[in-house]
Design a protein around this nucleic acid. Structure first.
Lengths: 112, 112
DNA sequence: TGCTATTATAAGCATATGCGAATATTAGCA
DNA sequence: TGCTAATATTCGCATATGCTTATAATAGCA
C-alpha cells in the first residue's frame, strides 16, 4: 500500500491510504470534550489521583470517573492503584505535545 | 493567571489553568470522525475539490459537503471557489503534523 | 467485622451528532 | 434564458454522548 506525501512541515510520514481513520477518530473524540481536556490539563501537571483531579473541575465524582474511564479506554491515560486512591498520568508524555501543538495551530488563547 | 508546567517533551507551553477547553474540544471533535479524517487525509495530498475528495470515500456528495462545512467552521480547512468547483486545503500545514503525531503516539497502523 | 474514604459502574433522560433524501444555490455554456 | 455540473443546505430520524442520581466495589482502620 503506497505511502502518501502529506502537506505537513515534512518531517515524518504516518499516513497511508484508507481506514485506520476510525481508530484515530476514537482518540480525537476522547479529546473532544471540555471536561476531559480539563482532566488532561490537570494530569499534565503531574500524576494525580481522582479527588485531586476533581478539584477545580466543577464536576461530580462519578462524572470524573466516567471521563477517566473513556480516557483509559482510548489509551490516553493510565491509572495505578495506590491504596484507596488511583493515580492517573498521561499514557505517553507526547500527549501534552499534541495538545500544545493543537493550541498553537488554532491559536487558542490559554488565558481564556 | 499562572502558567502551568506540562509533562510533555518540554518545548513549548501553551496551557494555562482553566477554560479554553471547550474551544479546543470543538477542534478535536471535528477531528473525531472517520469521514472527516478521511477528508483530511485526502486534502493532505494537496489542494482538492469536493468531487475529488469524494472519490475513494464511500460517502454521498451532500455528506462530504456537510463534513467540509464542519471542518471549515472549526478552521481546520479552507475552501476557495474556482469556477463551479471549490478547492479545499488545510487551513494550516501543521494540521498534518498534528495528525501524524497522534498516529505515532497511539501507534495507529496506517496499513489497517 | 463494621465504618469511612475513595473510586467505579449502572440506569435514565436530554442533547448532540451523523446520515440519507430532497432541494437549493452557484457557475459555465449553448 | 435554459440546461447541466458542482456544491451547499435543510429536514427527519436513528444513534451516540454527557450528565445526574443511585448504588456498588475496594481499601484502610478501629
Amino acid at each position: 500500500m503506497p505511502k502518501v506525501e502529506s502537506a505537513g512541515t515534512g518531517h515524518g510520514e504516518e499516513f497511508d491510504d484508507l481506514s485506520c481513520c476510525e481508530e484515530m477518530a476514537r482518540i480525537f473524540r476522547a479529546l473532544g470534550n471540555e471536561t476531559r481536556l480539563g482532566i488532561l490539563r490537570r494530569i499534565m501537571e503531574g500524576e494525580m489521583c481522582v479527588s485531586e483531579i476533581q478539584d477545580g473541575l466543577d464536576r461530580s465524582q462519578p462524572n470524573i470517573s466516567q471521563h477517566l474511564s473513556i480516557l483509559r479506554d482510548r489509551g490516553v491515560v493510565t491509572g495505578e492503584r495506590d491504596g484507596a486512591r488511583v493515580c492517573y498520568r498521561l499514557a505517553d508524555p507526547r500527549v501534552a505535545d499534541l495538545l500544545e501543538l493543537a493550541a498553537k495551530i488554532f491559536e487558542i488563547d490559554p488565558t481564556r
